[in-house]
């Protein structure tokens, strides 16, 4: 009798689970869709603001086109993937007159005030193909000049495009913020940035 129950009655009772399954999929069939329908809809900016895209520079509050960066190379040393290239600015080349003046001053035994190299980097190249988005550069930046961008819509069609000049990007962003109507749409710009 037990075998009969196990092999005949029980499977018939268990068939109810099949109907329950149909009921669930049927219920969800009638419910509204939950996917974001990309070209027509976009992800809400709240979610986007926490998205960690590629690394970007932060401009000075008063001069948004110049980064806070002081070319200390902490990011370059600590980057595990070696994806950042920072070139320090050189001191402006003295003109012939200045050079002559300094020479004369030195010969006279005076202390010469040569202009120092600006702290801002001359070049800040970021290779996205190598980056693992670990954020080590951001934490170790003493000037707090780096952050993750929210640039979710960025596409590149070649490897060369994945190498971003972050200084140029910052300038483009600054120009866009100051004159949004006239600013030419920069290559890496996206809806996300316009809000920023």
């Amino acid at each position: 009798m037990n075998t009969f129950r196990k092999h005949v009655i029980q499977p018939i009772i268990d068939c109810w689970s099949l109907i329950v399954g149909l009921k669930i999929t049927g219920k969800y069939f009638c419910k509204p869709l939950i996917t974001v329908h990309y070209p027509r809809e976009v992800i809400d900016s709240e979610n986007l603001s926490t998205y960690g895209g590629h690394v970007e520079l932060i401009g000075k509050p008063k001069d948004p086109a110049t980064p806070k960066c002081i070319s200390c190379m902490m990011c370059v040393t600590n980057c595990p993937s070696g994806c950042l290239t920072v070139v320090k600015s050189k001191a402006p080349k003295p003109t012939a007159d200045q050079e002559a003046a300094w020479k004369a001053a030195e010969e006279a035994g005076e202390k010469v005030e040569k202009p120092k190299a600006p702290k801002n980097p001359a070049k800040f190249i970021y290779d996205y193909t190598k980056c693992s988005l670990c954020g080590t550069c951001i934490e170790n930046c003493p000037a707090k000049s780096l952050r993750f961008s929210n640039n979710i819509y960025w596409v590149a069609t070649s490897r060369a495009e994945m190498k971003i000049d972050l200084l140029a990007r910052l300038k483009g962003q600054a120009a866009e913020v100051s004159a949004p109507a006239h600013a030419p749409k920069s290559e890496a710009s996206a809806p996300a940035e316009k809000e920023a």
């Binding site: 969800y28 069939f29 869709l33």
Partner: peptide, 13 residues
Amino acid sequence: KFAGHIQRRPGPF
């Protein structure tokens, strides 16, 4: 389309 709506996505669009 059926599959899409059951899975709560639009299907071909």
